[in-house]
Every structure is written in structure tokens, then in C-alpha cells.
Design a protein around this nucleic acid. Structure first.
Lengths: 138, 138
DNA sequence: TATTGTTATACTCTATAACTATA
DNA sequence: TATAGTTATAGAGTATAACAATA
């Protein structure tokens, strides 16, 4: 029983989720800034686990296709990704990592694997949290 | 034991946290858009639980003070908040909700209290999740 | 006709630096 | 000198609508 005399409410969890999320996002932003990437740029590299059309990238990032054009433009001038035509359907442009981009992506993955807060939970707590999140997402 | 033969990892939790957060943020954005508010505008109203200086608002939103000026400008022209001088220190501008703003803020709070996923957890799960998040935040 | 991607446009958010007024 | 707030500036992200090329 909390001090207010009511059971754990959605409100309590939302507040804590918000705070943990804020810390995680802040951590990611600082760490990928060291790679000279913004959060959306880092998320695009993260999503690019194999070559895929621009439209597929937009789907994975849950944003408009016109948006992807700009983010990719900025990554392309830096030589991290490349647009390639697809033989067989010349409307499509496959987006692929360059060697440099693949290296950068590996560093982004490393950032995502070391999170403040979550990283400090015991294996038991980690498993319990994973299962609870699965039920919330179901 | 997961199918990959390893215990629950930070990576698993981060992935699920990310997905739940995305759904929560998306939900909030859609619901406050019905009130013609952007996410930062809604968060500002949420933070304004009593009149306070602009600087205090910036602190609560974890952003630069110059940023608050613009967000408040947009809320003020719509009559949701008002700037008032503080007697005794004329550098300070107290930010306060108008009657209309207070009403809008109540609706924002209602949005934050009804979250997809989290809202569907049992009281037991909700308590367990709250406690796990507390340990992660410690 | 429908689809892929880009361009044009407009707006919000964001921080940095310079500025004003006040303390 | 230091602090509160604004303004000027610049850049990134976001969506909508219109467009070109292709299917």
C-alpha cells in the first residue's frame, strides 16, 4: 500500500516509464552525438540490418517516406549509406550501408546494448521485467 | 531459457522498452493532437501544476530557456497560459494557466492516465512493474 | 491507374550566442 | 557581476501535397 492509500496505478508506472525513457534517450543522444549522429540518423542505421528499399526504411521508422529522403541525404554525403537502383524495378532504390556505415552501425548497436538503469538490474529482475513488458505489449 | 540459449539480456529489455515507449508516445501525440497540442506543448501544461517562473519550466522540461519562450508564445496566443510579472523581482515572469488552460491541462492528464499496454496489466503486474522500474531508476 | 521516391513548402522544436532589463 | 527572459540565427525533423519516373 502506498502512502496515498491506493494500489499501484497506471499513473505511477507511466511516470516511472517516462523517467526511465528520458534517461535512456538522453544516454543514446549523448553517445551517438559522439559519432556525430542525431537520434533519427542513429535509428535509421540501426534499422538497416540489410539492404532494403527506402519505403521499407520509412515503415521501420514509422515515419513518412519524404522524411527518409532528408535523413538519408545527410548520411549519404558522409559516405555512411548508398542508394542503389534495383534491377527489375527501376522505381525502387535499395539503401545499403557502406563499409564505413557498417562500422558506425556496430558502434550504434554497442550504445543500445549498454543502458543506464536497465544494465544494473540483476538477471532475475531483468527476466521479470522482460516478461512484464511482453504482457504489456501483448 | 530463451530460444537463443542465453538469459534475458539488457538488449531484450531495451527492445521492449523501446516498442512500449513508441506506442505510448504515439498514443499521447494522437490524443493531444485532438486538443490541438504538440507533445512539448502538452508536456509543458503537464509540468505546470502551479504558477512558476519560466526558468523553472525549462528545468522541468530539461530544455534550454530560450526554447520555452517559443512554446509559451504559442500557448499564450491561444489563451492557455499567461505571463505575469513577479512583484519583488521584476526580472522574473511567472507562468500560470488561464481558466481555459486549466481545463485543457485536465484533459492532458486524462490522456496520461490511460495508456495502451500498461493500462491492461493486472494490479499485481502493475505493482511488480512499478517496483522493477524503481530499482532500475535507483 | 497505382507505386516509389523526390521536391516544395511550412511549421515545430532545439540549442548557441548576443542582447535587455533587473538584481 | 550575475540572473531571467527574449531575440536572432541556424539546423534537424516532421507531415502534406504535388510531381516525375516507372510499373
Amino acid at each position: 500500500m502506498s502512502k496515498s492509500g491506493r494500489p499501484a496505478a497506471t499513473e505511477d508506472v507511466v511516470e516511472r516509464m517516462g523517467e526511465l525513457t528520458r534517461r535512456m534517450m538522453g544516454h543514446i543522444e549523448v553517445r551517438v552525438a559522439e559519432l556525430e549522429l542525431t537520434l533519427p540518423q542513429a535509428m535509421l542505421l540501426h534499422s538497416l540490418d540489410q539492404p532494403m528499399p527506402m519505403r521499407e526504411v520509412a515503415g521501420r521508422l514509422h515515419c513518412d517516406a519524404s522524411n527518409v529522403t532528408g535523413i538519408v541525404d545527410r548520411l549519404e554525403v558522409r559516405g555512411l549509406v548508398a542508394r542503389r537502383g534495383r534491377p527489375g524495378d527501376r522505381r525502387v532504390k535499395e539503401l545499403a550501408l557502406t563499409a564505413s556505415g557498417a562500422e558506425t552501425r556496430t558502434r550504434v548497436e554497442a550504445v543500445l546494448d549498454t543502458m543506464p538503469g536497465v544494465s544494473n538490474l540483476s538477471p532475475t529482475d531483468l527476466r521479470a521485467l522482460r516478461d512484464l513488458l511482453d504482457r504489456a505489449l501483448a
